[in-house]
Design a protein around this nucleic acid. Structure first.
Lengths: 197, 197
DNA sequence: ACCTGAACACCGTTCAAGT
DNA sequence: ACCTGAACACCGTTCAAGT
């Protein structure tokens, strides 16, 4: 085993790049993210990352996609807990906001305007999967008579919109941590008024 | 006048840099924004911009700040038109969404997570000025009995949040132009339910 | 005041070559 | 398959020097 010591990278360079990239994204911001530094940190030549990501944007896209997966898992888990529609909605909002605060730079990356429209297809699909969760929750609420009738979209879209808007304010520090905590209940109450039969 | 021809820049390099920067931001995206190219385009040495912006981030901040000013003007104008609260709210939403679609990259820049918390003070203040507009509108609606009673913030914050969330989806192309147009009325109706007495 | 020109330390990307 | 090393064309920032 000493023979292959430091020859090739330890197994999965791709995963190592993503992990390390997210770490520096969180600690030093998106501006400090450099492929060359990443390679240096991982003890690999600066050209090595290109085997796994065709360019820097491809790494950023992969990072964003992984972020959507994790957010999706988190929200799905929150949806399980909660007997009533208000409980489930409240749980969803809190989970989304918590993720936004804990992963501000990543969430920013996830929703950043892509100038190349074709490249963002997978990211848009991932966002739609999130929207679909809101739809399911609303539809379930309608079946139980806890949510007003009408096209699911006409309620799920505004709900998802408010959810994301609040998280967006929280992550961009337009709202302080205190304002987020203080405003949360009012926002949830308002959302419930918008959903009420 | 031929004597000063091409010696110094045409009067206001600072303003020229901002104008040109916003143009390339819109046309080629934020990744293509380079100080050196900007200087080249304006026929000035690559070190000249540093006289007006201490670094690249300072230029981006100035750009974002100017964006907030323009958005503020646009929204203030939309608020004048409209006799009833629903009319004024609808006008505000449409104005914000129009701005978001027409200036997606700029709005993204305006709300981008700044890793240096101190640097973004002025930007946060600008966002708060926008929030204050929502507060005024809600307070006015309360006086006229068109909006439910209670602390202004408990209604204005969710309203502003929904507003921004929808614009954010529109600009990040999570929603297509069609989905934005189709969803607008449902979102406004939902907001009004959240505000209703 | 405002700008130039050179210099420095970085980038991302590509490509022949190695194992 | 996976990585290296050198090369290329760019960056942002700084700083003496010019007018």
């Amino acid at each position: 085993m000493a023979a292959m010591h430091r020859r090739y990278h330890h197994g999965d360079l791709r995963a190592a790049l993503l992990t390390r990239a997210e770490q520096t994204l969180r600690e030093k911001g998106p501006g400090a993210l450099s492929l060359r530094e990443l390679a240096r940190d991982l003890g690999v030549s600066h050209a090595a990352p290109s085997r796994h990501f065709k360019d820097k944007q491809a790494l950023l896209d992969a990072l964003a996609l992984a972020g959507f997966d994790r957010l999706h898992e988190t929200l799905a888990a929150s949806r399980e807990a909660g007997e009533t529609f208000p409980d489930r909605l409240g749980g969803l909002v809190r989970a989304y906001v918590d993720f936004a605060v804990a992963n501000a730079e990543l969430l920013d990356l996830m929703y950043t305007v892509k100038h190349d429209p074709a490249a963002s297809e997978a990211l848009i699909a991932a966002a739609h999967r999130l929207g679909a969760m809101a739809e399911e929750m609303v539809a379930e609420g309608q079946r139980d008579g806890e949510v007003r009738e009408g096209p699911v979209d006409s309620i799920a879209l505004p709900v998802f919109t408010t959810l994301h808007g609040f998280a967006s304010f929280a992550m961009s520090s337009v709202l302080s941590a205190e304002q987020v905590a203080d405003g949360l209940d009012a926002v949830i109450a308002y959302m419930l008024r918008g959903c009420a039969p």
